[in-house]
Design a binder for these strands. Structure first.
Lengths: 149, 149
DNA sequence: GGATTATAGTTTGAATATCAAAATATATGA
DNA sequence: TCATATATTTTGATATTCAAACTATAATCC
């Protein structure tokens, strides 16, 4: 048993290996995001909120809370602060008067675009050694995984 | 401009699309992990710690803190609790007397294995629609990305 | 329709997690 | 040796989080 990797036996199936590679990828992204976030003075959840709103557009509180993985109570106070900072606004849902939509302000958009550019740089760096065909294949495979979530 | 996706223009380059797919994948994994964690009564950081120690084996405090994305001060109190719960132990570093190695106990190993099984199930589900060749390609591409981090 | 149950969001108070800075111990290099 | 750098812990203040109670609206059932 290798002293430095006590929990990995040598002859995993592809599935096990793939699983660990995904976990490693997730951990590394998570660590990268953490570092970015701390530098900018946001919390991790706030950046996730900006990312989600930036990529998906306006969303209900409940939907957002589910996607981030926090309770709606937690999200309420978080969104309060983000409204205060003028990154997002609340507006009523068109058809469901219980619901509230949250969306990025212009300032929030700018933050999203800046943060997105950092992600793009990372993605570019990580895939620098790939051919354009390989990047296309990766895009295809990840898209299909996202659909299955 | 599509009302529901105000921030995504229609004609992105592959790189932009790939970037957003990676972000989406990360957000979804993060949300999944959050939900798992809340059910079990751990914190997200604690599970990351268990994952990291499980996959990498024993690690120094500093190294662990960097990978998780917290300060060493934060990690100290977190590890205190995990030692208390008998999931990990501290032991001196062989050559550097400033450093402390953290490693999983048998109980911690069991937790890791249980958590890892959930991840494996997720990975299996997400790649259920792929051929074995596609899974191999995915493994190859992700491994190369991990190396570039 | 009217009553009941479910869902969306907010508020509150307590518990927890986080950081920055100071303190201690050891290592490294001039 | 002395000065500087690194690893960890401690501390006190701040921020985050949850669960539960509460309000408002929607959906369902008789």
């Amino acid at each position: 048993m290798a002293a430095e990797h006590p929990n990995i036996t040598q002859h995993h199936s592809t599935d096990h290996t793939l699983n660990h590679v995904i976990i490693e990828f997730y951990e590394k992204l998570s660590s990268w995001e953490h570092a970015i976030v701390r530098d900018k003075g946001f919390s991790l959840s706030q950046v996730h909120t900006i990312e989600l709103l930036g990529v998906h557009g306006a969303m209900r509180m409940k939907e957002l809370a589910d996607k981030i993985g926090v309770t709606t109570g937690t999200l309420t106070v978080q969104i309060d602060k983000m409204v205060e900072a003028e990154w997002v606004v609340r507006r009523p849902h068109e058809t469901d008067r219980r619901s509230i939509l949250v969306e990025l302000t212009e300032k929030g958009q700018t933050l999203f675009i800046e943060h997105d550019a950092l992600h793009l740089q990372l993605t570019t760096d990580l895939t620098a050694g790939m051919s354009s065909e390989e990047r296309t294949v990766l895009l295809n495979l990840l898209t299909r995984m996202n659909r299955e979530f």
